[in-house]
Design a protein around this nucleic acid. Structure first.
Length: 824
RNA sequence: GCGAGCGUGGUGAAAUUGGUAGACACGCCAGACUUAGGAUCUGGUGCCGUGAGGUUUGAGAGUUCGAGUCUCUCCGCUCGCACCA
């Protein structure tokens, strides 16, 4: 145990050293205990069925070249505090860390420097690991994983094959979001305001063959099962919003030539949430990309205008298309649509305000009750028929509810009855059906880049797309001559020579490998499962491990992942559940989210602004404990916070105060008042950690320390309780002071103090005295004093006497131990 | 436009959920001490007023013995989605 005694043989010899030294030397203290924890594997965890488990999870970082950001430790420290406290409370705590290691930056770095992504990624992982260890997090490092490790991505590929086998992964040629700067296709979730989430370049449409995963099949369950989990509200509502479920009906409108002659079996199907307004339809609109625009082109009298408009739309970016809300379009002259409710013939237009990807890419326009249709009708001088009573449609569309008018059999009905009647009529007459639509699209899963998981599929002329046999997994990344993607959207893997050619696993004939790779969201969709059993080479995780460790009890991460990683991984997990590979329907019991840390002036920290704070510098100058404690004290955990060097100093002073307080520790017995302060602090800190109110937990500790600073001598019991309560926040300092108190155990494995509410209460209370609700003074009373005593004491106050003189006292309200309010 | 949330000192923020507003910390002011350090310690610090006192939680109203907290109206801010039929 000489490590503990700084190399000295006994406690006494070591004590000689620190009794002289009165400066808080965080450097030697922190490196000393980090070494001891490492050596004793203080945070290693195994399945232990005699203990209740607790699985705490934080989002694993992408190991960027820039290293750790001050934002990372906010989340990591918070769950480290929770994990450490749970451990001290006797739980078997799994708190793992790993690396989400595939991604574009490593590849772009390779293009610039020629360094293989695997090499730079490994170097970055090493640096991140060093940084994380320097902060004293209680991760079980034996479980560290990396998504770019073939032993890991073998299972990512295996799961992709399961998606394919179940028909949920399919290849489709479709218009996708293309980032011309990253030269890569993007999922809908990766497009923010029409721009690439990663680089900010404007996204364009590109027709490409893509692997897709049918997340929309799970849309309803992804909404419904939110009821069974404890996620903060803004996460739930954002996910529900993103999935965008809306109920309505699909209606088929017949198509005719301009004389009303029916065009064979061509039907124009639309989705609407208000089929009950069908009597107000005065025209139809197709998205310019709608297949009928090409199929019926011969019939258009103004084919040239139509083509011009279609071409012009194709050139517009999504952003341009949504920014401009003036309504443009072209009538398809030569055809008409027939309203199945009243048989009327109405004109058909194309316009870019109708989106190709939502519903059927065609709408029935009800200008009286939809502002967009209204604007279009005004621009093209089309009739507007009001079918819901109310508003003033001379000015604008009436979008609220009112009784039906001008609507034949619907007249007089409210919305609910009208909807039912309209759909019943459509079903009976065979031109419609009720239908649920989602904003959520299937997941575009192909990336035309090198540094990702190869998609384990081959194409055979005879057999089509085939998965490679399981025995060939992992399909490792081949070497390529260069990492440049090209503008045609071909992956660097298309230059991989021999690797491309293989045999078809079905017929044995020639086959060619898929050259696209998976998105970086693939590996992170199931990493929490691998942590349960990270070294298993036969399964992605054993049933025993999954049964014991799942679910994740508490998952903290950024809001920016709500409609990306968090949604994808819930979907992925549900799929594995359906296949019988995981025991639970949802992966995470509880989800919380931390606020961002901004620079001192409230701006985002960024390299270009030059205002980035490097955790290494803070640890070097003030120590990990101060850094951790400061990040917990900086403000409400779920809100944005501004970095402040001056506030950091305040916390540093506090930590020094705790260190110096040790010199006053003595064998004296604690007084009743001392115990009150102690138990109050225990109760507050315990409760506040559970509620993630870390900033107020820290202020409780500060009050407790201020109390002790006022004492001549500090009873050892008070100080050792402080050391334990501080342990989740400042584990190094706590460990050192615990040892100096003469203990030979590790404080991180000690038990959490128990607070006694009875001992925390004072037997004298201060009661506020009010006159008509206004504060007039306070009185000291024994706790739970009888009402009559309180009233008398209150009335006896000088101030009260003066102001009640000659007035009638109507009533006196006494709130026990708090308030006495006299009403005159 | 739709959805979620917020508004309290010079600053970051507390407030046991309807019961002494401003805990804790930063900053500032005054003082002490010094082997001048990123010091440390003591006291003060919402605003107006020398004072007694008055006043105060974005603005206004309401409920209540009592409102930062509940209700309504308005103003302002943040985040997410957004021509989603």
């Amino acid at each position: 145990m000489s490590d503990r005694y700084n190399g000295k043989d006994s406690f006494e010899e070591w004590a000689k050293e620190w009794r002289l030294e009165d400066r808080y030397n965080f450097k030697s203290i922190e490196s000393k205990w980090q070494k001891i924890w490492d050596k004793e594997k203080a945070y290693k965890v195994e399945i232990d069925k005699n203990k209740e488990k607790f699985y705490a999870l934080v989002e694993f970082p992408y190991p960027s070249g820039a290293g750790l950001h001050v934002g990372h430790p906010r989340s990591y420290t918070a769950l480290d505090v929770i994990s450490r406290k749970k451990r001290m409370q006797g739980f078997n705590v799994l708190y793992p860390m790993g690396f989400d290691a595939f991604g574009l930056p490593a590849e772009n770095y390779a293009i610039k420097t020629g360094v293989h992504p695997a090499v730079s990624t490994q170097a970055n992982i090493k640096n991140f690991t060093r940084q994380l260890k320097s902060l004293g997090f209680s991760f079980d490092w034996d479980r560290c994983i990396s998504t770019c490790d073939p032993e890991y991505y073998k299972w990512t590929q295996w799961m992709f094959i399961k998606f394919f086998e179940k028909g949920l992964a399919y290849k489709d040629k479709m218009a996708i979001n293309w980032c011309p700067s990253c030269k890569v296709g993007l999922a809908n979730e990766e497009v923010v305001n029409g721009c690439c989430e990663r680089c900010g370049a404007q996204v364009v449409r590109k027709n490409k063959e893509q692997w897709m995963i049918a997340i929309t099949k799970y849309a309803d369950r992804l909404i419904k099962d939110l009821d069974s989990v404890d996620f903060i509200d803004r996460v739930k509502s954002q996910q529900i919003n993103w999935i965008g479920r809306s109920e309505g009906a699909e209606l088929d409108f017949g198509l005719t030539d301009k004389y009303g002659q029916v065009l064979g079996d061509k039907k124009l199907t639309v989705f609407t949430t208000r089929p009950d307004t069908a009597f107000g339809v005065t025209y139809m609109v197709l998205a310019p990309e709608h297949k009928y625009v090409a199929e019926l082109a011969d019939m258009f009298e103004n084919a040239k205008d139509v083509k011009e408009y279609v071409d012009a739309t194709a050139k517009k970016s999504d952003l341009q298309r949504t920014m401009d809300d003036s309504k443009t379009g072209v009538e398809l002259k030569g055809i008409k649509a027939k309203n199945p409710y009243n048989g009327e013939l109405i004109p058909v237009f194309i316009s870019d305000y109708v989106l190709t990807g939502y519903g059927t890419g065609a709408i029935m326009a009800v200008p009286a009750h939809d502002q967009r249709d209204y604007d279009f009708a005004k621009a093209f001088d089309l009739p507007i028929i009001q079918v819901l009573d109310g508003g003033n449609i001379l000015e604008k569309a009436f979008e609220e509810d009112g009784p039906h008018i001008n609507s034949s059999f619907l007249n007089g009905m409210n919305k609910e009855d009208g909807m039912r009647a309209a759909i019943d009529y459509a079903v009976k007459n065979g031109f419609g059906r009720s239908k649920v639509n989602y904003k959520l699209r299937d997941w575009v899963f192909s990336r035309q880049r090198y540094w990702g998981e190869p998609i384990p599929m081959v194409y055979c002329e005879k057999c089509g797309w085939q998965p490679i046999p399981e025995s060939e997994l992992p399909l490792t990344l081949p070497e390529v001559p260069d990492y440049h993607p090209n503008d045609e959207g071909e992956s660097p893997l298309s230059k991989a020579g021999d690797w491309l050619n293989t045999t078809c696993p079905k017929c044995g004939g020639h086959a060619r490998r898929e050259t696209d790779t998976m998105p970086n969201w693939a590996g992170s969709s199931w990493y929490f499962l691998r942590y349960c059993d990270p070294h298993n080479s036969k399964e992605f995780a054993s049933k025993e491990a999954l049964d014991y460790w799942m679910n994740v009890d508490w998952y903290n991460g950024g809001m920016e992942h709500t409609t990306l990683h968090l949604l994808y991984s819930r979907f992925w997990h549900k799929f594995l559940y359906d296949c019988g590979y995981v025991p639970t329907k949802e992966p995470y019991n509880k989800r919380t989210s931390h606020g961002m840390i901004l620079a001192e002036n409230g701006e985002k920290m960024s390299k270009s602004r030059g205002n980035v704070i490097n955790p290494d510098d803070i640890v070097d100058a003030y120590g990990a404990d101060t850094f951790r404690l400061y990040e917990m004290f900086i403000g409400p955990f779920d809100q944005v916070a501004m970095w402040s060097d001056e506030s950091l100093m305040g916390v540093y002073r506090f930590v020094g105060k705790v260190y110096n307080l040790f010199k006053k520790v003595s064998d004296t017995a604690p007084s009743e008042k001392d115990l009150r302060a102690m138990h109050k602090c225990i109760l507050e800190v315990t409760e506040r950690i559970d509620q993630m109110r870390f900033n107020t937990a820290v202020s409780s500790l500060m009050e407790y320390v201020n109390y002790m600073s006022g004492l001549e001598k500090v009873p050892a019991e008070l100080y050792s309780t402080l050391v334990k309560l501080l342990c989740p926040f400042t584990p190094h300092l706590s460990e050192e002071m615990w040892a100096r108190l003469g203990n030979t155990t590790l404080v991180v494995t000690e038990s959490w103090p128990k607070g006694d509410p009875k001992l925390a209460q004072d037997n004298v209370v201060t009661i506020a005295v009010q006159l008509c609700g206004k504060m007039r003074g306070t009185i000291e009373m024994p706790k739970d004093a009888p009402r009559i005593d309180v009233e008398q004491a209150a009335l006896a106050l000088e101030n009260v006497k003066k102001q009640t003189e000659g007035k009638e006292i109507k009533k006196i309200i006494v709130v026990p131990n708090k308030i006495c309010n006299i009403v005159v």
